[in-house]
């Protein structure tokens, strides 16, 4: 079941005009911003399918940049996000792609600054609900509706157990978990959606584990 809460249906409260093309786009942008942990200096946003055909009419461009500026779906500033981004020195480029994707509302967001880059692919599945399906080349599934942990780790035995042991110790329940890797024995990514918010000390404890490269927390 993709939709779990009644507020996925009666909600979100948002700036119009489209839940999938405006609110969903804002959420995709905001997840990218969350994962990057700071405001990017540049963004290249590729639209596919219905997004590519109708993004101007739906304000998808404005909304996704609003998300990159950390605005929520109901934030009135979304309407001026392109001007605000420019004022902050953020360079934004939009690309209308012709390629056919699995989902008609797909966006690829590449953001970065002098320190680093991030690339994610998000889909907007209806009613403002989104899924992140790819992060830096890793396939993943992230609804953005629960607090989540992204753990980059070496693809070695025991890595997953050591992470889940620490979560168990702190009485944090795992709602959904996904593991993907680029190659056997190389870099891998754990996506863990949990029911409770995760404290900073838990993050530190996880980061200190052997074979764990990076731990990122995404709030609800």
């Amino acid at each position: 079941m993709k939709y779990k809460s009644v507020f996925d249906i009666i909600g979100p409260v948002m700036i119009g005009p489209s839940s999938s093309h405006t609110a969903g786009a804002a959420r995709i942008g905001r997840v990218a911003r969350d994962l990057f942990r700071r405001e990017p200096k540049w963004a290249t946003i590729s639209f596919y399918g219905s997004f590519a055909k109708t993004y101007k009419g739906h304000g998808t461009d404005v909304a996704i940049v609003g998300g990159l500026l950390d605005f929520d779906t109901y934030d009135e500033r979304i309407k001026e996000s392109l001007t605000l981004a420019k004022k902050n020195g953020m360079k934004v480029r939009f690309i209308e792609e012709d390629a056919i994707t699995d989902h008609p509302n797909t966006a690829k967001v590449k953001i970065g600054d002098d320190e680093g880059e991030l690339e994610l692919v998000g889909i907007s599945i209806g009613g403002g609900k989104i899924e992140i399906i790819e992060l830096n080349g890793f396939q993943l599934k992230l609804s953005g509706h629960h607090p989540a942990l992204l753990v980059v780790h070496d693809d070695k035995f025991g890595a997953i157990a050591s992470v889940s042991n620490i979560l168990a110790k702190h009485a944090i329940n795992i709602g959904h978990m996904d593991v993907s890797r680029k190659d056997v024995g190389k870099m891998a990514l754990m996506t863990i959606e949990v029911d409770q918010t995760i404290d900073e000390n838990v993050i530190q404890e996880l980061t200190a584990l052997p074979n764990i490269t990076q731990v990122t927390r995404i709030a609800e």
Binding site: I10, V13, M14, I15, G16, P17, S18, S19, G128
Partner: peptide, 20 residues
């Protein structure tokens, strides 16, 4: 209001937010 980029509650979507 939705078309004018005003604030609405999606039910279940923004494009169909008027009916409920």
């Amino acid at each position: 209001v939705n078309a004018a980029m005003g604030t609405i509650c999606a039910t279940p979507t923004a494009g169909s937010a008027g009916v409920v």
